[in-house]
Design a protein around this nucleic acid. Structure first.
Length: 660
DNA sequence: CTAGGGTTAG
């Protein structure tokens, strides 16, 4: 080799043979390093997350001749592994071993025991009674109380245990006690306490913790940061979440996900997408959590286009097998009207969990095919998914939207009889809704009156709507008054009552009611409908003439109206809430947002294209009738998602069977 | 030995 080159090379050429003298080689060969101790191996395994290995090594150690000291040295790691694997009975037996071996007095062991009992809800070893008792959190408390010297970890572990099991007040008072004992809450304490104020949506207390974190210097901690972001987002204060996020010097993937989730859960689709894009630009790789947080936002706003794009991204990233993501995709496609795509994703799942089943069942409930929903429920029962209260809400909704009274009663009764689930307000509301829709008004009235839980205005409102549909004025009057007592500012019952007074010639009462409505400044929620055409979202607010195609839309609508009038259609003004004359009401109907959106869809898309329209409120009676006509006249399939369900209009009929 | 982000409904 060239001498020049060798002088300049940084790496010496490798030697193939050892340059050491033979004597040295013999010395090396006879030296055998001591094998790593049992406890060392166990600690390493647990630290790397190989919990099963750690436990298996621990058992091997116990079966072998190991020094006495190896038990206390390995117990913290063994207990950590039990906590992670949920081996509560074995963990409790380690508690007994800890006492026998004297390791119980070690702080690390005691802390690990507190953690074990906090994580496993089940058994704990009770030394006094030489038995295993249930109610593990009490076991944690006992270990904590009996400790000779506690450290911050002891306090933090118990605080988190209490917080995670919903014992919020106890957790908070423990934090006060720890301060009195001279321990300063650290970042662990704060990120365990913040979720409490997130859950209770208590910004005031949450901000106090935020202030404490700043004084404490732990506000730059990523765990505290993500807890703060989540807390503020849960209190609908995403503006504060943003401030926390922007002020953090270091951002890890969890922080980005907290922001995505915070916006998504508050319905801020644009902002959630914005953070997602920024995250990608910053070179942070999305994880499954990112998608399962983001995707539900597209379902709730029915943005099928974005939902599809994210689905493609999920496939590209190889996250298709994630159960959370699959469930969120099922839900998103159902809410965007694409129930068959949702079903395909569901069918491809290896073992759908209860959330996946529920999302699919709810999808059918919203779209109408109740039989399909109930078939899925029966099929689910054959597997190992246990229905929960949301599942029953989905089943009852399905029955309600299809008028299946007997089935509805059957499932409602089965909840408490066979599944140990106490019907909550929303289940009672669903059943009341079912009875009312089916025309069993008196039964619905009796059911609501005898409910265990005090019925809210919204429960009575479903009955009021049923009374109007089934033209029971007497009952409607009574129900409307009940709602007005519960919610004096609610506009629905006022309008219903005033319309009934007018219809029965009780002019004075009608006028009086309308006057008081005006005095209270009551206004209807602004209705809006939206439709996506060529990747552009067109939003229509009632009577809003700002759309560039407004005139063309009205012209087309008039053509449809003439044809309908020709076929004997009389505009139905029951849903018009203003205090105006009949002729003006008919005119008002023409400006309804869903009509504008549907007609715009028809004149701006090629023949045969399915029209998909979303509305923030329920479809009005007249619009529903008109849309049925339009579906036939224009030979279009029209899918409308309103506030309560989907309507598939085709050939002059609607999938809801005129009940919604 | 202790901590933060996710799916169905409301």
């Amino acid at each position: 080799m060239n001498r020049e080159l060798r002088r300049h090379s940084y790496i010496r050429p490798p030697r193939l043979r050892s340059p050491r003298p033979a004597v040295m080689s013999i010395a090396v060969a006879t030296y055998t390093p001591p094998p790593p101790s049992w406890s060392h191996q166990i600690r390493v395994a647990a630290a790397q997350g190989h919990f099963r290995n750690a436990i298996s090594l621990f058992l091997q150690m116990r079966a072998s001749v190991a020094p006495r000291s190896s038990v206390p040295a390995s117990l913290p790691s063994a207990l950590k592994s039990c906590a992670a694997l949920g081996l509560s009975a074995f963990g409790a037996s380690l508690h007994a071993l800890a006492i026998r071996s004297g390791a119980f007095t070690h702080r690390l062991t005691a802390n690990a025991l507190i953690n074990l009992y906090c994580k496993s809800r089940g058994l704990y070893h009770s030394p006094g009674r030489e038995a295993i008792s249930s109610g593990a959190l009490e076991g944690a408390r006992k270990v904590f109380d009996e400790m000779l010297e506690r450290d911050v970890v002891s306090w933090n572990t118990l605080v988190l245990g209490l917080a995670e099991q919903g014992r919020h007040q106890e957790a908070l008072s423990l934090v006060r006690k720890m301060c009195n004992d001279g321990f300063r809450p650290d970042s662990f304490t704060l990120s365990s306490v913040l979720p409490i104020f997130a859950e209770n949506a208590n910004v005031k207390r949450g901000m106090e913790v935020h202030g404490f974190a700043i004084r404490n210097g732990s506000h730059n901690d990523v765990s505290v940061g993500s807890s703060l972001i989540d807390m503020y987002a849960n209190c609908t204060r995403t503006d504060y979440s943003v401030k926390v996020f922007e002020s953090l010097p270091v951002r890890d993937p969890i922080l980005w996900n907290s922001m995505v989730a915070g916006f998504a859960q508050n319905g801020s689709v644009e902002e959630a997408l914005g953070i997602f894009r920024r995250m990608l630009c910053a070179g942070v790789r999305p994880v499954p959590v990112t998608f399962s947080s983001l995707i539900p936002a597209f379902g709730n706003s029915a943005s099928l286009r974005f939902g599809r794009q994210l689905h493609a991204y999920v496939i590209h990233a190889g996250f298709e097998g994630d159960m959370f993501i699959s469930s969120s995709l099922i839900d998103m496609y159902c809410k965007c009207g694409e129930i068959s795509i949702a079903r395909r994703i569901f069918d491809r799942m290896a073992s759908p969990d209860i959330v996946s089943w529920t999302a699919m069942i709810m999808g059918y409930a919203l779209h109408g095919p109740a039989r399909e929903a109930l078939m899925l429920f029966e099929r689910m029962e054959l597997g190992n998914a246990k229905p929960n209260h949301v599942t029953f809400l989905a089943v009852l909704t399905a029955c309600s939207h299809a008028g299946l009274v007997d089935k509805g009663w059957k499932y409602f009764n089965a909840m408490s009889d066979h599944y140990g689930i106490v019907p909550a307000l929303e289940h009672c509301a669903a059943l009341a809704d079912l009875l009312g829709r089916a025309g069993e008004l008196d039964e619905a009235y009796n059911f609501i009156s005898k409910m265990q839980i005090k019925p809210t205005a919204s429960v009575w409102s479903t009955l009021l709507r049923a009374c109007r549909v089934h033209k029971n004025t007497m009952l409607a009057e009574e129900v409307a008054k009940k709602i007005m007592d519960l919610e004096p500012r609610s506009i629905g019952p006022h309008v219903a009552l005033s319309n009934m007074y007018s219809a029965s010639g009780r002019w004075n009462e009608a006028a009086h009611l309308r006057k008081s409505m005006r005095n209270k400044g009551m206004k209807k929620d602004p209705a809006c409908s939206w439709i996506e055409v060529k990747n552009k979202l067109h939003v229509f607010v009632a009577h809003d003439r700002s759309h560039p195609w407004y005139d063309r839309i009205v012209n087309a609508l008039n053509v449809f109206s003439e044809q309908m009038a020709h076929q004997g259609h009389v505009p139905n003004t029951e849903d018009i809430l203003q205090d105006i004359e009949e002729e003006q009401k008919t005119y008002a109907l023409c400006g309804h947002s869903e009509k504008l959106a549907i007609v715009f869809g028809i004149i701006s898309t090629p023949p045969g294209t399915t029209i998909r329209v979303m509305k923030n409120l329920r479809v009005c009676i007249d619009c529903h009738t008109v849309t049925k006509f339009i579906s036939k006249l224009a030979e279009r399939e029209i899918v409308v998602r309103d506030a309560s369900r989907f309507h598939h209009f085709k050939d002059g009929n609607c999938s809801c069977g005129d009940f919604w």
